[in-house]
Write a protein that binds this DNA or RNA. Structure first.
Lengths: 338, 338
DNA sequence: CTAGAAAGTGAAATCGTTCTCTCTTTTTAA
DNA sequence: TTAAAAAGAGAGAACGATTTCACTTTCTAG
């Protein structure tokens, strides 16, 4: 049933029906007649026709590098919460950490099928900048600051600082660093800086050779821990850019008789479930992923309502969660017991 | 730029342009002219107009109960792979384990904005059946069999059987069961049956009081393990319906001095990353989540191509992964070392 | 009491396609 | 050579809404 048929059924004009659904001058009498007819027929306007006519789809595109990672999943949950509540639909593109697929997804946008975009950030290439700049849609970058665009990010530098400082405050003096590529501003560069901040603050020199770069998974954490610890056996504490990497490193320690925290303290950023239940529960910095997602979605909706809102960067805080990997609890301690 | 303008620019009729993009009789000369004009202008047909006119949106809705769970995330990744490759877009609705939101999402479909649905299954209520039956769209149920509908599911019964039998084959005689609600056919009912199958096969009676029901998370696993093991201290092995629950149970053992596997063997279904790196790596049954997602998407595309395809249920197999929680490896053993 | 503003109304244009229908031209088969 | 089939082309009617515009009626203020 279309609007013409429905209007005839209800005994009003098409315009009246449209006003009923979209607001506008409409007498009480007609409003009641239409309401009754809706009740009787179950009529509702066609979304496709509305999209064509109004040029708004009420759909938001979310581009993300990986779904099966706790942090991304939680951010998407946050986004989904807010979009749902506001009657927007969530279109998902998983780029599988493939930068070209990311750009391809952005290019798809020039066929304007969505009202806005939330881009969960990883590595930005010059191509990204080109295509992002050419976009006429509101874009929110989630997970790192990006000049000229709205963004919601975490205080990665502060988080890394807190985690590292926590170990140094316990008297450790030979810190190692297991990071990710510096091309990733948030998890790579900022966390590295935070690590260095803590060292500088404590007057501990950063020796070359005491850092290594891993990929975003446990296996890589294991391998890089192996490389690093064989090269630098004197390390007494290790900061890892992500929980996954820390778990890999922990696994290496376990299988090579390195005691955590006695021989080596370990900290990380992310506070994942896996880190909490690991062999030695890992001291980690909790970031508010879900909140970040919600905030990004809210920001986007704001921009949709008023396109002239200025670019703004919201930075979320963090919470250090001390656990057994820094000697703040015994590994056997109840995690969930009250 | 719309088709009329573009057709004028290229010096052909609107119909010719449409045929260029959709196939149909078209002379080589016009084809070349249009191709050149596309190159020059970057024109492409409006998706919204196509949706309205053809009544096909090339969008697929995926309804799932939870994003931040490894299994769901992997299934969605599989779905995303296939849809992407075939030019379909993925619309995501996260129902947050709320049955009414699930039904609401399905009802949204009667506003027909998508071509098909993949429903990641949990608990099916009579309402589900009503609304599913009233749907005129192809629907694939992912994660459990559901009579009358296409589905892709795992051999949950076989998986639970394998996990349980593995413990019994090692001489254990007092098995306990930590499951989830039977309203969930796959993770609840089928895994329970598999557990019972193994007991029957081994001639081990199932004592009442040796089973308990948990929610889908670690905390609940911890609590239910506590209840169960305090009531039945003589248990010597424990089957858990999910890895999360098993991790919770393991945590309980750890904090209460119960040695795994010596005092209590533990197995589960799911083979999550967290289970592999737990305090005692958990023997678990691997299910092919990603493949399941891919298969579901392929099935849906088939139905989209030919709506008369018959309902079919594909059941995927499983792989038992023996680990330290059943004494098949030492906890210190390298997981990733070659 | 009246002018002007506000509220209420419906016809018709518009959004950007696809696709049927009619017609012409070319190819094929007998 | 010719009839039938196939290929190619374009006009114009949908698809199902929103929104402008011109108009009428009802308030409100002075």
């Amino acid at each position: 049933m279309n609007i013409t048929e429905f209007a005839a059924y209800a005994g009003v004009s098409k315009a009246a029906v449209s006003r009923y659904f979209n607001g506008g001058y409409l007498s009480e009498e007609k409003r009641a007649r239409i309401a009754a007819a809706v009740e009787a027929t179950g009529y509702h306007p066609s979304l496709q026709a509305q999209m064509l006519r109004t040029r708004r789809t009420r759909q938001v595109l979310v581009i993300l590098p990986k779904l099966s990672s706790e942090s991304c999943a939680r951010m998407v949950e946050g986004i989904s919460d807010v979009l749902d509540q506001n009657g927007y639909q969530l279109l998902l593109v998983n780029t599988a950490n493939d930068s070209s697929r990311e750009v391809a997804a952005l290019n798809l946008l020039q066929q304007n099928t969505v009202d806005g975009v939330i881009l969960i950030a990883t590595i930005f290439t010059p191509e990204h900048r080109t295509v992002l700049a050419s976009l006429r849609l509101p874009v929110i970058i989630l997970g790192q600051e990006y000049p000229g665009f709205c963004s919601v990010s975490h205080d990665d530098r502060g988080a890394a600082h807190a985690a590292t400082a926590h170990m140094l405050s316990k008297g450790r003096t030979a810190p190692g660093f297991l990071g990710v590529t510096m091309l990733d501003k948030a998890a790579g560069l900022d966390r590295r800086r935070g690590f260095e901040d803590a060292l500088r603050e404590a007057g501990v020199p950063l020796r070359p050779g005491r850092t290594s770069i891993a990929a975003f998974n446990m296996e890589s954490g294991y391998e890089q821990a192996s490389t690093l610890l064989e090269r630098e056996p004197s390390l007494d504490c290790l900061f890892c850019a992500t929980d996954s990497i820390a778990i890999g490193a922990l696994q290496y320690c376990r299988s090579h008789g390195i005691r955590v925290p006695e021989d080596l303290m370990i900290t990380a950023v992310g506070d994942s479930e896996a880190g909490r239940v690991a062999y030695v529960p890992i001291t980690s910095v909790q970031l508010h992923y879900r909140t970040a997602g919600q905030l990004a979605a809210e920001m986007l909706l704001e921009h949709l309502a008023d396109p002239h809102t200025k670019p703004e960067n919201r930075v979320l805080d963090y919470v250090l969660r001390p656990r057994a990997s820094t000697g703040d609890a015994s590994p056997e301690e109840d995690i969930w017991a009250e």
